[in-house]
């Protein structure tokens, strides 16, 4: 699975969890917070995405992640593990 495909999964889950968000507005170099996601929303987006990708990245590993692209990199390590 490629990083782009992972970003697609994260973006779709972000759209499902945040009201009034336009897909074309989402830039992977941004943080979900930039689109109005609060910490509870982010937990939900991360959970849904990991379940879909059938991976389990330790939550403690996600603390330093700053943006969607970095999250996808982290997921990628586990998808291809």
């Amino acid at each position: 699975m490629s990083k782009d495909q992972i970003i697609e999964v994260i973006t779709r889950n972000l759209l499902e969890n945040i009201d009034d968000l336009d897909q074309s507005a989402i830039n992977p170099e941004s943080s979900m917070r930039d689109y109005g996601a609060n910490s509870l929303d982010i937990i939900e987006v991360v959970s849904c995405s990991m379940r879909e990708l059938k991976i389990k990245v330790p939550r403690s590993e996600l603390a330093e992640v700053q943006n969607i692209s970095q999250l996808a990199d982290k997921f990628l390590e586990y998808v291809n593990a």
Binding site: I55, K56, P58, E61
Partner: peptide
């Protein structure tokens, strides 16, 4: 899904979904 090297990185935050 969980490899031995990573065991200590997991926490109660990771098993809420059954």
């Amino acid at each position: 899904m969980m490899n031995d090297r990573d065991i200590l990185k997991y926490s109660l935050a990771d098993f809420g979904h059954n």
